[in-house]
């Protein structure tokens, strides 16, 4: 059996495992998409141990020079695979990275003395926490195990790309009962991929603050009028923005006032969207969809 060649200054599989377990739990909590890329030499059997060692070191150094500071490069325990964990990146970016380094390897003879050298890779996009590090490594090694696979191949492991459905609280605070009902129906019918909206409507600010629904840890979309009986919209805005976990609130304020001063005041107070009445309901739906689309890459 070949002696395992370990490149210097590169993290090893067992070291990365601990980091991976932490990042995996952040996938859902922080909407942090991770993409793992595994690389292996294709159709290449080194004639000597020295040659193998030489290639390994050169490939490692090449990869190290091409990744960002937020990416993590490591070498597998068997010494035949390299792994890169891309944080905050989707498979699209990972594939673009691979295409880029493939091009460099093909054109520039990065690994000197071995003109015919080629690599192959597999990509795994991770959008849930159902994967362990060992399974991840095993599945990717399986994808690249076939020695007859061509050079510059890009395989994919798609088992972990389904996002879990996230529960989102939606509070509508509007005095006009008919319009409130319209908003409630519209938001009930709104389909946002990977998010389940739990819609509740209130006729005034006080009943919203009494309900305590805003005290849970869920992401919370608040669609409210600026003028409301009892507690008005701006008071609610200040209450929510003073809370320690205020970032979980997405606040849309509706108003009949279209003046620069009123709009600036609302944005400075912390609203995410200011919507002047009358407005188009389809536009409101589109804005909400875009807001949630930004949550995940």
């Amino acid at each position: 059996m070949n002696k395992i060649i370990i490149a210097e200054d590169i993290m090893q599989e067992h070291e990365v495992k601990r980091y991976f377990e932490i990042w995996r739990e952040s996938v859902i909590r922080s909407h942090l998409t991770i993409t793992a890329v595994f690389l292996k030499l294709a159709n290449f059997t080194p004639s000597t141990e020295v040659e193998r060692c030489n290639i390994n070191v050169q490939i490692s150094n090449f990869l190290k020079s091409k990744i960002r500071k937020t990416d993590l490069l490591f070498q597998s325990a068997d010494g035949d695979h390299w792994g890169i964990l891309f944080l905050q990146s989707s498979d699209v970016e990972a594939e673009a990275f691979l295409r880029r380094i493939y091009k460099m390897l093909k054109n520039n003879n990065v690994v000197k003395e071995f003109n015919q050298l080629g690599i192959k890779a597999s990509i795994t996009e991770i959008r849930n926490n159902h994967v362990t590090f060992d399974t991840l490594v095993e599945k990717n090694k399986e994808k690249l195990a076939d020695d007859s696979q061509p050079m510059w191949l890009i395989e994919r492991v798609t088992d972990y790309r389904v996002q879990p459905i996230e529960q989102v609280k939606v509070s509508i605070i509007e005095q006009n009962v008919i319009f409130r009902k319209v908003l409630e129906t519209t938001l009930h019918q709104l389909h946002i991929p990977n998010f389940a909206l739990e819609v509740t409507a209130y006729e005034d600010g006080y009943s919203f603050l009494q309900s305590n629904t805003y005290k849970s840890g869920h992401t919370h979309l608040v669609v409210m009028n600026d003028i409301l009986p009892r507690k008005n919209g701006l008071e609610i805005l200040h209450t929510l923005r003073k809370m320690p976990n205020e970032k979980k609130f997405i606040i849309y304020m509706m108003s009949e006032r279209n003046s620069e001063g009123a709009i600036l005041n609302a944005y400075e107070g912390g609203v995410d969207e200011y919507i002047v009445k009358p407005f188009n309901l389809r536009l409101l739906e589109a804005k909400i969809k875009r807001t949630f689309a930004r949550f995940w890459l």
């Binding site: 006009n176 319009f179 319209v182 509706m254 009949e256 009445k277 407005f279 188009n280 309901l281």
Partner: peptide, 13 residues
Amino acid sequence: EIIFSSYLKNIIN
């Protein structure tokens, strides 16, 4: 009148 007024004051369509 109340229903129509609620729509016209709040929604453009």
